[in-house]
């Protein structure tokens, strides 16, 4: 019923527009002008709309900042994220500055130089100095931006130093959920391949690999310790996914047939962030950010950042992959090699 009415309204609307068109034409002919011609007065009216639109546009922009600004991501909860935020602030500042300057010039010129038959436009075809100016200045600004950006990029993409204390976690993606696998006491992930998937071994962990015995597999939520670098390794068993952890300024695709990696050091615990945001239900999340199928919109996992003690306590409660197997930490290299054969 509603649709039928809408269609009737649309059809009537079209008819009305056609009649309007005829009225415009006839009134133009009655005034002795061509119906498609823009008179000087009409042109002036359009010119006046330019600054009106500009002000409305800017007001809309500012209203959005006031209205939605508070709900943007809070300060970064990772170490590299602080550099990320600095770079973002600088770039955003530059963009907004250039935006206002150029848009204002555009609408102002359009307003100021509306057609008048008493005036002629200035014949001004080129000026090499001006061209040089607006090639040179953007080049300079961009050089700085590029150098700053690349510096930050290189630091972010630096892998964790193997010698230093760190946590190693595999993020495993499939349609449509996440699983995290901790490397356990030996801090080495056991080999895994989709070829080994069978029964309860949903991640295809190679049970003959001694490093796999102490691996811990968790679902629903995973915990990480504050202040300790976390090295993530991403895998996917079916299609492309993307592990996106927006609060930590972290993202990496999960690619079937390959391993990818990303690392960061969390700096703010979940509890602290709850206080900072004033939201007692706040949780860090991992979500999928690469179209992966029908339920893509609901592929998520909670992340809990807590003190090292709490983290270790939590981890101790998690079940090992093969609790009865040998632990790689308790035997020497030779035995590991033998066991792996």
């Amino acid at each position: 019923m509603g649709v039928t009415l809408t269609f009737i309204a649309i059809v009537l609307g079209i008819v009305a527009v056609v009649y309007l068109l005829r009225v415009f034409e006839l009134s133009a002919i009655a005034q002795g002008k061509k119906p498609w011609e823009v008179t000087e007065e009409e042109g002036k009216n359009q010119a006046r709309l330019m600054p009106v639109f500009m002000i409305a546009f800017y007001a809309f922009f500012i209203w959005q900042i006031v209205h939605w600004g508070p709900y943007l991501l809070p300060e970064s909860a990772s170490k590299h994220g602080e550099d990320y935020d600095t770079l973002m602030t600088i770039t955003m500042g530059l963009i907004i500055f250039v935006f206002f300057v150029t848009q204002t010039l555009l609408f102002y010129f359009a307003y100021k130089y509306a057609y008048s038959k008493n005036r002629r436009a200035t014949y001004y075809a080129h000026n090499n100095k001006l061209e040089l100016l607006w090639t040179g200045v953007p080049s300079l600004v961009l050089t700085i931006l590029i150098l700053f950006g690349l510096n930050t990029w290189n630091e972010i993409m630096q892998p964790v130093n193997e010698e230093e204390e760190h946590v190693l976690i595999e993020l495993y993606a499939k349609q449509f959920d996440w699983t995290a696998r901790y490397a356990g006491k030996d801090n080495k992930l056991g080999r895994a391949s989709v070829k080994n998937i069978a029964g309860t071994n949903a991640l295809g962990v190679d049970s003959t690999d001694i490093h796999a015995n102490d691996d811990k597999i968790v679902k629903g939520e995973f915990h990480i310790p504050v202040g300790v670098p976390v090295q993530f390794v991403m895998r996917s068993q079916d299609v492309l996914h993307s592990a996106y952890m927006p609060h930590f300024r972290a993202q990496m695709n999960c690619v079937p047939g390959a391993k990818t990696q990303f690392n960061f050091t969390p700096t703010i615990t979940t509890e602290e962030m709850r206080q900072k945001t004033g939201n007692p239900d706040f949780n860090y999340i991992l979500l999928c950010n690469k179209i992966c199928g029908a339920a893509h919109y609901n592929m998520q996992m909670d992340i809990i950042v807590e003190s090292k003690e709490d983290y270790e306590k939590w981890l101790a409660e998690q079940k090992e992959f093969n609790p009865n197997g040998k632990n790689a930490n308790n035997i020497n290299e030779k035995e590991i090699k033998l066991a792996q054969r």
């Binding site: 042109g43 010119a47 010129f109 130089y113 008048s116 005036r119 436009a121 001004y124 061209e131 607006w134």
Partner: peptide, 15 residues
């Protein structure tokens, strides 16, 4: 962009 803006500058614009 700057060339567009300069073209508008001191023009005699028909809307």
């Amino acid at each position: 962009v700057f060339n567009y803006l300069t073209t508008l500058w001191k023009g005699n614009i028909k809307f």
